[in-house]
Amino acid sequence: MEHILELNQVSKSFPKSGFLLDKVSFSLPYGAIMGFVGENGAGKTTTIGCILNTLLKDSGTIRLFGKEMSDGDTGIREKIGVVYDGDNFPGYLTAGQLAKIMSGLYSSWDDDLFLQYLENFHLSGKQKIKSYSKGMTMKLAIAAALSHHPQLLILDEATSGLDPVMRDDILDILLDFVQDEKHSILLSSHITSDLEKVADYITFIYKGSLYLTASKNDIMYNYAVMRCKESQFRALDKADILAYRRRDYQTDVLVSDKKKMQRKYKDIVIDSVSVDEIMVLLVKGERV
């Protein structure tokens, strides 16, 4: 399988804060959406910073379109669209002025497409960006990111702060974008319901370490939670346990092979698991 983005053992430390992004590895295939999940401060933005070279990684390799991107590789950046959380553009600009700037930055900038997005999103080209609402600024950023025909979209918490209807519209646009099998999206978010709707792959990061990277189908069909009584929990094979969390009368145990567990532990209730539940179990649960 060809990958548009590959991270291999990427590390980045911040001595002042003590934060360490620790040997993160994952791959995003062409034509896919990867949900990059983790709580605030988990290392999502740091990882994206390393991918985009706004942060300088300490070690590891990052390949975009099969190549490590240096400052001089402007051709690679031509194929990447980026949306950050919050204000992407200076408030003193209007969308019209932004288009003029972007057309001077990207050789493949499509003014007609940008105007079409502005119309679809009901954004005025003459209004100063500082007078936009948060939802409007995010829509503008998405319009700008898509209007130079990128192959890879990287969105850092781009749907946070949007109302459910707007989020749904944006997710539809993202789904439409990956209809072309040469297009991919890395979508960082902590809104797991969005990711469950659109993502093909889920990568979960916690305190700078990668906890899980798997296809959504794998998670939906193979990952499960076993609801164990204390005696059942004690009898479990430790190798089967990814994480567990004790509750009042039962212990929830996260496992990665539902069918095998069903065969192996016939008297234990095994439920399918949501991304949200996996996240909670991995973060709040304990490891064996």
Partner: peptide
């Protein structure tokens, strides 16, 4: 954002 654009 500018650093993600195709400029050195």
């Amino acid at each position: 954002y500018k650093l993600t654009a195709p400029v050195k």
